[in-house]
Every structure is written in structure tokens, then in C-alpha cells.
Amino acid sequence: METFNFLDKIIGESILSAVLSALLPLIFLIVYALIAILGELKISAWIQERLGPMRTGPYGILQPIAEVVKLLQKEDIVPTNANRLLFNLAPFVMFTGAFAGFAVIPFSPAFAPAHINLGLYYIFAVGAFAVIGIVMGGWASNNKYSLLGAMRSASQMISYEIPGALVVLTAAVLANSLDLQEISLAQSGPFWNWFLFGGPGPWTKIWVIPFTLLLSLIFMITSLAETNRTPFDIPEGESELVGGYHTEYSGMKFAMFFFAEYANMFIVASVLTIVFLGGWNSPFGEFMSGYFWGVFWFTSKAMFIVFLQIWLRWTLPRVRVDQLMFLGWKVLLPFALVCFIVLSLYRILY
């Protein structure tokens, strides 16, 4: 299947198509975030035998809109002793980082906002903005809880980038590329061609399947840690740090942190989708595949991962800082290294 940007096809390569390419993910992000917020509310409610929001719209489906409207009209409070400039800047840095990740995500063979050949590496790099945003907000709030949360968050995200990077490296070795479109293309065909199941190859590849499964699990865990989701939500651990780095934020700035969190969730979910679940490929080979179906498969796979994240959040307690570090450095890293070596060997052998 050929990859291209359908906007370039329609209106030609121009500033307009570039702007539209940047705008489409933004619209997608907002719609997705609203759906994800509703999902979070409803799934948490159902897991806990509650009904969840039921008032706004039928079965409460308009609740996220109501929440955003509420946040929009709330008073924008800046604590007196906060560093005003950095306090106001932090949510934007955070959101910029989250949104920048969307630039390379291939939603379909016919659309990736920016098709660059280092997509996977790029997503990892812009993740750094989230760290800066959190640290900035945490420090500028002039609140000890925020500071503690920011420090925890920074150490957590930096530590978990390492096993995450190893997983991505392995994926790059498997696909022989860092280009997200090419990684997706490499897994075309039915679902047993996905890297989750060892990637395309003869049936003798069966012995690498445990390693690829393990690898995807490791990436799932690291992605949870990098997006500060339970069980790794210690930066905002409610019972300890009240709200962590966003304790002092309210109104729209809080909403931006919130949106950034959900955007990050989607980014890691889509990386997982692209690297292990075949990206926009249909699980049934040629059946239901194509440029348009690509969007469907991609979003539904990514949303399934988001669902997994939400499901885990409402199941598990929170780990402690030192256990998080233990898990990252002493469990995930060795396992990821073993998988990396085994899969590199596999790559050389076949």
C-alpha cells in the first residue's frame, strides 16, 4: 500500500495543506479527549457499580462538554506567591509537547500530518516537553506538594524513557525503520503479521512470540508510567500530594493539563498500536483494509489501549516512588534488554 498525505493530493503541497494537516489532529485531539473523559467517567462508574453521569444528555453523554464549559468559566486563579510567568507558561509547554507528538502519528496510509522518517524517535523526544511542563508548573506554584509532585514526575518520566526507548529500539530493529508509516507497512497482512506476534515471517517465528508479547507488555507499563496513570500516578497521587504538580491550577489551565494528559495517553496508545498492533492495518488481511478503513482500525486499536489504561486505573493501587524505580530499572530494563538481544538475533538469523 502506498503512503501519502491525502491533503497534499487534494490541494497540492502548499501552506494551506500544511496548516490543514496540523489542524486535523487538533480537532481529532479535542473530540478524542471528550470521548476519553466520558469513557473514564463511565467506565470507572460501571466498574464501581455506579451509574456515572446521567443528567447531561441521554445517559450523560454530554457530560465532558459540560465539564469543559465549567472549566472554561471558572476563575483563573494564580497563587499570590507563585511565579506568575512560569505558572502561566507551564500548561502551554505541557500541551505543546503533547500536541507535537500528534504531528507524526499515521492515522491512515493516506494521512500522517508530517511524514518524517524518524517518527518514533521524534515522539520520544517531544515527550521531554511534558517533563519540562510539569517541573515548570510544579516549581512555579510555590507549593510544596506541587514541588514534590514535579520532582517525582521528572524522575519517573526520565527513568521510564529508558526501557521505553529499548522497546522502541527493538521495534526499529524488527521493522528496519523508525518511520511510523514504514513500521505499519511492515506489518501489513493479517493479524499474525503484527509485531505483537513476532511480525511477518514463516511459522518458525513462533519462538519469538513470547518475547514480543513481553516487549509489548513492557511498553504498556512504561507508557502508563510516562503518562502518569495509575498505578504510576504518584506525581499527582491524590492521597499523598493532593493534586501533585497541578494542585494550584484551576480553570482553563487545569483543563490544559487535563487535555495534555489525555493526549499523552493517546500518543502512547498509538505508538503501541503502530509498533505492536499493526497500526492502521486491518486484522483480517485484505478484508476491510484501505485508506479509509485505516483510520477506523487505527483509532479503534488505540482506543482499546486507552480503555486498557482506564481499566487498569480503576483496578490497581498506586505504587511507591522507590518501587516505581525498582520496577523501571531492575525489572523492565533487564527484561527489555533480554528481549532486545533475542529479537536482534532473530532479525539477524532471518
Binding site: I43, A45, W46, I47, E49, R50, L51, L312, T315, L316
Partner: peptide, 21 residues
């Protein structure tokens, strides 16, 4: 143990809700 927990919460996802309007 995480899988066990997930199984339990998943079954509750479809159980009868106890809260009312």
C-alpha cells in the same frame, strides 16, 4: 495479581448498578 484484579473489575463492569437517579 494484577490480572486477577482486572478480572474482578471486568466482571463488575457488567454487573447491576447499585446507585439510583
Amino acid at each position: 495479581t494484577i490480572l486477577i484484579g482486572m478480572k474482578i473489575t471486568f466482571t463488575h463492569l457488567f454487573s447491576k448498578k447499585v446507585t439510583i437517579q
